[in-house]
């Protein structure tokens, strides 16, 4: 007998991780484009950003929907609690995503140099991760009020909690760090030295707050949810691995060579931290209301979803490889010759 709940949560966690990486690149790019405009350096990096991001923005969005549909598919109960509690922050995120997504397409047709557009592009890049990270905070428990049949978000508890603010902070700085590192790598492939220099500076700058806020959030987590904290402490080796990858990435960035390797280290850094966090939360999806065993879908649906997932992956993986080969690893395209 297979454990559909374990397969389900692992697949979803992997997808959420994937979303975090590619969405971070996207969201951070928005912030940097705006910031570069303010400091009059936009000519250096704008071409770089639009060249990589234009063909893939839609894919980024689908990753998100994929995770969301997956979680309500494997764990239908979650949609009741998270749906009720996330009505406001969730809708806010949808509106921001809508502004961002559609302006991506509009941008291609002339609004590129519009300051309002660039501001929205930059602002949504920071606000979307902030509003989405509320869901992660919620999962720690203590932020949902339940009166009779109605579940709602306890805004006061949320806004006054140092944990929720540190998670928001962590979301924002990680986005900027991941994005800067990726764009530095992309610039190095494009042999665009000016852009590379700028992005390398950004990446180095955002590395310190990332590691500081990560530690802060971890301490606040200990105060808020003892169980989760202890579980993560038991996985200390994963956290240590994460720090080690961070150090390697910093070393490579600082020395200024092998940017691809540096970015892979950053991906591994987040991968190990993210999985330590997820495994530590086991078996809860929403502490204390939903555990993965209590809310899992029926076994026939679980089986169907796994089959659909495998089938879907057989289509998607080759297509994604094709996209990467065409837009990320095709040296001529990256340099702007195609």
């Amino acid at each position: 007998m297979m454990n559909y709940e374990l397969i389900g949560i692992s697949v979803l966690w992997l997808f959420l991780y994937g979303y975090i990486i590619i969405a971070s690149i996207d969201f951070g790019a928005g912030f940097f484009a705006f910031y570069a405009r303010l400091t009059k350096q936009d000519h250096v990096i704008n071409k770089l950003i639009s060249r990589y991001l234009s063909p893939v923005w839609e894919i980024t969005n689908v990753f998100f929907v994929f995770f969301y549909i997956g979680i309500i598919g494997f764990f239908p109960e979650t949609s009741y609690y998270y749906g009720s509690a996330m009505l406001v922050p969730g809708s806010l995120a949808v509106i921001l995503l809508a502004i961002r997504g559609s302006f991506y397409a509009f941008e291609n047709y002339g609004s590129k140099h519009n300051m309002v557009y660039l501001f929205l592009y930059g602002a949504t890049g920071v606000l979307i991760p902030a509003s989405l990270s509320v869901a992660l905070t919620l999962s720690e428990g203590g932020f949902i009020l339940k009166q009779g049949e109605t579940a709602s978000l306890d805004y006061w508890a949320l806004l006054s909690s140092p944990l929720s603010w540190s998670i928001v902070g962590l979301a924002i700085v990680s986005v900027l760090f991941i994005s800067a590192a990726f764009l530095a790598f992309y610039a190095s492939r494009a042999e665009d030295h000016a852009a590379l220099k700028l992005m390398r500076t950004y990446a180095l700058f955002w590395s310190t707050p990332t590691i500081v806020i990560a530690l802060t959030a971890f301490i606040f987590l200990g105060q808020h949810n003892e169980r989760h904290f202890q579980n993560m402490m038991d996985l200390w080796w994963l956290l240590a691995l994460s720090v080690a990858f961070f150090m390697i990435a910093m070393w490579l960035l600082y020395r200024g060579y092998r940017y691809g390797m540096a970015f892979i280290c950053i991906m591994l850094q987040f991968f190990s931290a993210f999985f330590a966090y997820g495994i530590g939360q086991y078996p809860y999806i929403l502490d204390p209301y939903i555990t993965i065993q209590s809310s899992v879908t029926s076994s026939s649906m679980g089986f169907a979803l796994v089959v659909a997932f495998i089938g879907g992956m057989c289509l998607l993986v080759p297509s994604l490889i094709l996209v990467f080969r065409l837009f990320l690893f095709d040296a001529d395209y990256v340099k702007g010759n195609k």
């Binding site: 009741y80 979803l305 879907g312």
Partner: peptide
């Protein structure tokens, strides 16, 4: 909005309609 506005619907029907929703995203 399926979940945000209709939480009770998804709680009940999620068990049955997850597959087509999933395939639609694919």
């Amino acid at each position: 909005q399926l979940s945000l506005v209709w939480p009770n619907f998804m709680k009940l029907a999620g068990n049955v309609i997850a597959l087509p929703l999933f395939m639609e995203v694919f």
